[in-house]
Design a protein around this nucleic acid. Structure first.
Lengths: 91, 91
DNA sequence: TGACAATATTCGAATATTGTAATATTCTCA
DNA sequence: TGAGAATATTACAATATTCGAATATTGTCA
């Protein structure tokens, strides 16, 4: 019964995605990359610090990355494995 | 920014899979269905009651189902969405 | 029926996660 | 430089999860 995937790696990914707010953020970022924090906060109607905390969890799990674009920080899903998982969901 | 997937449904799935033991069980069951509890307990070297608890969580999340086969209960992954997610992992 | 094998449930302590509020940091640009 | 916008961090109470131990339940078959 050999296992051919990295269980710890995927456990971390699933854990990061196992929250409605974070899954929504990640899924939306996959479909439409480059979104800043305030915009997410407004769209989701969730306080900005709470959004930042969830983004931090997603970043630590290597699900997303952020880069500064002038005034703000633009996030996107930057993980092939995550993209292939999220892409499955709408099928 | 319309969302076209059922966030709650997938959150429940990811939450169920977001544990090393449960992910291992689900992944193995997908690759080789029909495994009973004691066998899992032995293969994983995890106490039987603990395995049962994890199976219960996977069942509640509709990830697996179990049916009695004579003396024992055989579990398998019985959820198309979960199968399509788990199938991605080895790619 | 009764013994045994297989599986499930309950409980409690330890740990982790969550949301909110308050505050801090970082960057831009006038 | 300094004000303001954007983002991040901290602290804490409430809630949820985890594991192990003890025990209970369920089904089979002699």
């Amino acid at each position: 019964m050999e296992i051919d995937i990295d269980i710890e790696e995927y456990t971390a990914i699933f854990k990061a995605l196992a929250h409605p707010t974070r899954l929504t953020i990640a899924y939306n970022l996959m479909k439409k990359p480059e979104c800043n924090v305030n915009r997410m906060s407004e769209c989701l109607n969730i306080p900005q610090p709470t959004v930042s905390q969830h983004l931090s969890i997603l970043k630590n799990a290597k699900v997303i990355t952020g880069k500064r674009c002038g005034n703000q920080i633009c996030y996107k899903v930057d993980n092939k494995k995550v993209i292939s998982i999220l892409s499955q969901l709408a099928k």
